[in-house]
Amino acid sequence: MNFSVLMSVYYKESPKFLLESIKSIINQTLLPNEIVIVQDGELTTELTEILGKYERNYPNLFKFIKLDQNVGLGPALAIGINECNNHIIARMDSDDICHPERFERQINYLNENPSIDVVGSWIGEFDQDYTEVTNVRKVPLSYQDVLNFAKTRNPLNHMTVVFRKKAVLDAGNYKPFLWNEDYYLWVRMLNQNYKIVNLGEILVYARTGSEMYKRRGGIQYLLKDISLQKEFLRMNFINRTTFYKNIIIRCFVRLLPNSLRGFVYKTLLRK
C-alpha cells in the first residue's frame, strides 16, 4: 500500500537530529512512496543544506512545502496533510528515530483492520543514544481504553501515529491549539466515533531531557491546559467532575520546579 510520511521542520531544529530522523525513515523495511516535509518558515543554512541534499538525491520521494512565515506545528501539519497524495499518512517528528519495522507493522495493521482510523504505539525515551532507553511511555491499546484514557490524558504519542487522511479531514484536520494540537484532534475524532488504537510495542525513539520537562511547565502552559479542558467540557467529552480533577492535577504538575516535574514524568507518568 502506498503511504505518505508527514514531517514539519522549523529553524530551531538540530541539523544532526533531523539527519538521523530522515535516515530512520528511508531505512525502513517498508518504504513510503512520498515524504512530505513542511518547512515552517525560513530555516537555517544547515537545515536547508540537509533538505536540499535529499531533494537532489531522491527527487521522486521528497516533497517540500515551503511556508514564508512560521505558523506553528498545528497549522503546518494541516497544510501538509492537504499536500499528501496518499490515503494513509504516517507522522514523524524531526528529532526522533523510527524503529526499522515501524511502518511495516503499522501499515499492515491498518490493512488488516479497515475499521481503525488511527494507530499509534509506545515510545522509548532516550537522552543521547536511542539504544539506551531511559523510560517508556506506554499508552492504552484498545479503542475503549483509548477513549477512557483520553478523558484525562493524551492517549497517543503524536510522533507514532499513522492515520487515514479522510478521517482526519472529516474531523476538521489539525487546528491551532498551542502545545495541544494533536490531543485536540484525537478528542474530536473520538467524539465523532472514529476508532483509535495503539500497538503495544516501541516503534519510535523520542529524545527527552531537562529541556523537554521545562517546556511542559509554567503558567502559560497551564493556561493552555485549562483552555483545552474547557473545550472538552463544552464538547461534552468530559463531565464537570473530570474537568475539575484534570485542572487540579495539571496545576500541580505545571507549577512544579523543573527538576521535580522531571521526577514526576519519569516515575509516575512512565514505565
Rank of each mutant, 00 (worst) to 15 (best):
A76I: 01
L67N: 09
L43D: 11
A78G: 15
K53Y: 11
L67Q: 07
N60G: 03
K63I: 02
I22Q: 01
K53H: 12
L47G: 10
I65G: 11
V36P: 11
Q39Y: 10
I22A: 01
L43W: 12
K23H: 10
F62S: 03
G52W: 05
Q69S: 12
E34S: 13
P32C: 04
N33H: 09
I26K: 00
K23I: 02
Q69D: 12
I35M: 10
S21I: 01
I37A: 05
E42C: 14
L18D: 02
E20H: 09
G41C: 14
I22N: 01
L47A: 13
G74L: 03
I65R: 07
K53A: 09
P32I: 00
I79F: 13
T29F: 14
I79C: 12
S24N: 07
T29P: 11
L51E: 03
L18N: 02
L19M: 11
Y58S: 04
Q69V: 10
E42P: 10
E20C: 06
L18E: 02
K23D: 08
Q28N: 11
I65V: 15
L73T: 12
P32Q: 04
L77V: 10
Y58D: 04
G52K: 09
E55S: 07
L73E: 09
F64C: 02
E42W: 09
Y58M: 04
N27A: 09
D40Y: 13
N57M: 07
A78W: 11
G41W: 15
N60W: 01
T48N: 15
T44L: 02
F64M: 03
G41R: 14
L47I: 07
E34C: 09
E55V: 00
N27P: 06
Y54I: 00
K53Q: 11
E46C: 03
Y54K: 00
Q69H: 13
R56H: 11
I25A: 12
L31I: 04
E46A: 09
N60F: 02
L47R: 03
L30Q: 06
G52T: 09
L19C: 07
E20P: 03
G72A: 11
E46P: 01
G41H: 14
V71T: 07
G72Y: 09
D40W: 10
R56E: 14
A76E: 09
N70W: 07
P75A: 14
K66R: 15
E34D: 13
L47P: 05
K66V: 12
L61S: 06
L18C: 03
I37M: 05
L67R: 05
P59G: 06
L77D: 10
G52A: 11
S24Q: 08
E42N: 15
E20V: 02
P32W: 01
N57R: 06
E42H: 14
